[in-house]
Design a protein around this nucleic acid. Structure first.
Length: 596
DNA sequence: CGGTTTTGACCAGCGC
DNA sequence: GCGCTGGTCAAAACCG
């Protein structure tokens, strides 16, 4: 006897109309507090953005690509100053870096001197402080016992130590200059690479779109590249090998189990050709034998010898979840995929039943989702995705799929240290959810690691109180020092790739932050995004579209396709119809009509 | 008739 | 071991 079977909720599968008094806003606050409590135990992260940033600075390496040559200088400089790094020549920056670099030691000296010396020396220390702080700092570094002397004497005489220190200082200056220039050069190189990548990406997109136009019988020609790639690998050639798009977010080498199987792809194509009679096509084919023996979507995927590892990955992948909170009165958000309901249960603590759906766009697709209304606010629909699609997706489904996929992969790298998590937190948040007012929450302490994307906040003035870029990340073992873990190193790749593959949209919000080069200037993956001129408009449009319509995936698709298809010129056009996601969707791509 | 939804039953994990 | 809970299965009902 199912626990929830006593409730008959035929017309309201997820209990939207099972109203009980709604505690306005309390849920979010509670959730928020709850998350914060969780977080506070693991990362001791405060709620304020500034504090988050500060904590990140203190605890994490710089949120940049890690070039060993510039760690100290640029890091300290960039993050201790709220303003963008000055466009001044490198020399000036070097000085600033030094000032910051020795600030601690200066304090140290002050402490040491105050402990021993008379009061009259305070008068001397003041004016000389600026003048000789570098020297004293160096003395502290080199000789511990002479610090008291140096405070008194350095200002008057230029002894040997002083000269030595100055020489050392000059050397450091030169070194810093060299490092800065090298850093600059590397950044330029990276810019160029990413720019080239961007160009290639756009070129690829146009090619794929042309191909899809040429192949009208197939509704999802956009994904032809992936299919061709698969074909070429399976049949030994013939297809045009193109990079993976959208779904494989930089972890291609990681035993991808979400490779679109040839059979499923072909079935899908035939299914598309056969009109919508193929809705949920093959859903029953997966059958118990498949799901039980090998796990989701595994039977048609070429298996390697290390099936154990693949299974492990698959299992982990399956456990990684992405939860999306959005205001919607519809029983289910339209995410562009086709789902078949396979169960419904009453969840404890929530009068609204939870519905279980399985993706039916391809046989054996492992993706499932749970849909449930928020107990506190029935207007909030909580959709939890699990797994990666093993088949091509229509454009309308791309945004959500890629987002969940990248989120899941992000969680796959759950071994990363908290510092790394913080380091990439904002990047992740913006990658996953570009809306400035939305909030992404990662909770790995839950039974399953879950990323929560909260899209419910922007229209509510109360929610504006929260810092828009606030991001919480919680990991069970904050003290774990796994900064050397491959996962940590993968993150930039993952989200750099995700940033692109999830369409430029994902980076739009980031582009706002990139107005502050001190923060994002080193986020090399994202830099090409900043090259788009009218991103701000698109940001506004996309954000408005999302916030104005609970059916946000259409808006996502609209924004994505507007950028992909239209380039910079179209961005403004998208901004004109922010609230009409239908128009956006149709404008974006005709193939979007294949969605629900 | 094929596909989806409903819903009771079953199973596994977890805590006590 | 037992009860609770979440997740899934599968037969029956439903729908276009």
């Amino acid at each position: 006897m199912a626990k929830g079977s006593g409730l008959s909720i035929d017309s309201d599968p997820i209990g939207f109309f099972l109203h009980k008094p709604i505690v306005l806003n309390s849920f979010q606050e509670d959730q928020y507090i709850h998350r914060k409590n969780k977080l506070s135990t693991s990362t001791t992260t405060s709620t304020a953005t500034s504090m988050d940033t500060t904590t990140a600075i203190q605890r994490s390496p710089p949120p940049t690509l890690q070039f060993p040559v510039n760690l100290n200088c640029t890091h300290v400089d960039d993050h201790h100053s709220d303003s963008p790094p000055p466009p001044s020549p490198p020399e000036k920056r070097t000085v600033i870096d030094e000032m910051d670099f020795f600030a601690d030691d200066k304090n140290h000296v002050a402490k040491a001197s105050s402990a021993d010396d008379a009061d009259d020396r305070k008068d001397l220390i003041g004016p000389r402080d600026l003048e000789f702080n570098v020297n004293t700092g160096l003395n502290l570094l080199t000789t511990n016992t002479s610090s008291d002397q140096s405070v008194v004497d350095d200002g008057i005489s230029s002894n040997v130590d002083d000269k030595k220190a100055k020489t050392e200082l000059a050397v450091l200056h030169a070194e810093l200059e060299r490092m800065n220039s090298e850093n600059q050069r590397l950044k330029d190189m990276l810019n160029q690479v990413t720019s080239n990548y961007n160009t290639l990406q756009m070129h690829l997109m146009s090619l794929m779109q042309n191909q899809s136009k040429a192949d009208n019988s197939e509704g999802h020609g956009v994904f032809e590249g992936k299919i061709e790639e698969k074909k070429s690998s399976d049949n030994g050639g013939g297809g045009v090998v193109v990079p993976r798009q959208f779904m494989d977010l930089g972890l291609a080498a990681n035993g991808d189990t979400d490779e679109p199987s040839l059979s499923s792809s072909e079935e899908r194509r035939s299914g598309s050709a056969g009109n919508n009679a193929k809705n949920g096509h093959g859903a029953r084919e997966e059958g118990p034998d498949q799901s039980n023996s090998q796990g989701w979507g595994s039977n048609k995927v070429p298996r390697f010898n290390s099936s154990k590892e693949a299974d492990q990955t698959e299992a982990t992948m399956r456990k990684a979840r992405v939860s999306v909170r959005a205001r919607s009165e519809a029983p289910m958000i339209n995410d562009g995929c086709q789902w078949r309901k396979y169960g419904q249960k009453m969840a404890k603590g929530n009068p609204c039943p939870r519905a279980y759906y399985r993706c039916t766009m391809a046989a054996g697709c492992p993706v499932r989702k749970q849909v449930q209304r928020c107990a506190e606010d029935r207007t909030i629909l909580i959709t939890t995705y699990e797994g990666n699609h093993s088949h091509p997706l229509p454009p309308a489904a791309m945004a959500m799929a890629s987002t969940t996929s990248s989120a899941a992969r992000m969680l796959l790298s759950g071994s990363m240290s908290s510092a790394d998590g913080l380091m990439n937190s904002n990047f992740l948040a913006r990658t996953m959810l570009p809306c400035s007012s939305s909030m992404a929450t990662i909770s790995a302490s839950a039974p399953f690691p879950t990323v929560t994307l909260d899209l419910t906040q922007s229209p509510n003035p109360l929610q504006l109180q929260r810092p828009p870029t606030q991001f919480h990340i919680s990991f069970p073992n904050p003290s774990q020092n796994l900064s050397n873990s491959p996962a940590a190193s993968l993150l930039p790749q993952i989200f750099g790739q995700a940033l692109y593959n999830q369409s430029k949209f994902s980076g739009l919000q980031m582009s706002q932050d990139m107005a502050d080069p001190s923060q994002m200037g080193h986020q090399s993956q994202s830099q090409p995004l900043g090259q788009h001129g009218s991103l701000t408009d698109t940001v506004s449009a996309a954000t408005a579209a999302i916030t104005a319509d609970p059916n946000f995936t259409a808006a996502l698709a609209a924004a994505i396709t507007s950028i992909i298809g239209g380039g910079g010129a179209h961005n403004n056009a998208t901004a004109t119809t922010p609230t009409n996601n239908t128009n956006n969707t149709s404008n974006a791509n005709a193939t979007t009509s294949s969605s629900n």
